[in-house]
């Protein structure tokens, strides 16, 4: 589904943020992308989404990149960015920066209508997603009047409404209280699509991901089952991480 082939990327020449990163994520997998601050997690996401690197062309933060990034067999490039982005759903770390329409409902319809779905069909789809998430109460609410937890759920709903093949989530549980954090974790576990989650919340990663990719200074330090990597104290500490709280 997603393939990075020997990707090296630098925002500024001579200062690589990613060096020779290669991995493949299969359909239906849930992968946790972990690493200390500045390890390159966000850059991986940006490259995948075409917000940086060759996919961005001259519209984003281009930088210099080598290697190949493929989504569903297609190389990420400005030419096919629309098709690629149609397959990927990205939940930003800060939901306030994701929701720009006045109401949750309009935000959910925004993407669908942009992709040419008829109004009635779009409304049906959005309603179905809210029902599946058990969040029908969000429908008529204003984005600026809902709580942080509701906002995060709303952000997830806006992305799921697009029916993405791959769901990318950046710190989905940051700044959430334990109750809302648990709701998000349960929601992630129920979703059948391919998921890539970046987070410092290793307990959440353990709860949701079967596989973990550990990035360190732009390189892959480890790639394997969450059960193995998240219990390896030496490996985590060598890469400026700590064991999940439940294993400490």
């Amino acid at each position: 589904m997603i393939r990075f082939e020997n990707v090296t990327f630098a925002y500024e020449k001579g200062k690589p943020v990613l060096s020779g990163v290669s991995f493949a994520i299969g359909e239906g997998e849930t992968v946790g992308l972990i690493g200390a601050n500045g390890a390159g997690k966000s850059t991986v996401m940006k490259l995948l989404l075409g917000l940086a690197g060759p996919g961005a062309g001259n519209k984003g933060v281009s930088g210099t990149a080598e290697g190949k990034i493929l989504v569903d067999g297609e190389e990420v490039s400005p030419r096919n960015l629309t098709q690629i982005r149609r397959k990927l759903g990205f939940v930003l770390q800060n939901s306030d920066n994701q929701m720009f329409m006045p109401t949750v409902w309009e935000d959910m319809l925004f993407g669908l209508l942009n992709y040419g779905m008829p109004q009635q069909e779009a409304e049906q789809r959005a309603g179905q997603v809210l029902k599946e998430l058990g969040q029908e109460k969000l429908k008529g609410l204003y984005n600026h009047k809902i709580s942080g937890g509701e906002k995060r759920m709303a952000a997830v709903a806006t992305v799921l409404a697009m029916d993405p093949e791959v769901l990318l989530m950046d710190e989905p549980t940051s700044a959430l209280d334990p109750y809302n954090r648990r709701i998000i974790i349960n929601t992630i576990r129920k979703l059948p699509c391919t998921k890539v989650i970046t987070s410092h919340d290793l307990d959440m990663i353990y709860d949701t991901c079967g596989r973990v990719i550990l990035l360190s200074e732009g390189r892959i330090a480890a790639d394997g089952p969450a059960e193995t990597i998240l219990r390896d104290r030496d490996l985590l500490e060598a890469n400026r991480m700590e064991l999940p709280l439940r294993f400490q």
């Binding site: 917000l51 982005r85 990205f90 930003l92 942009n114 806006t158 992305v159 697009m162």
Partner: peptide, 8 residues
């Protein structure tokens, strides 16, 4: 970016 990713 959020707009771009949703088809803008």
């Amino acid at each position: 970016s959020s707009m771009l990713l949703r088809g803008y």
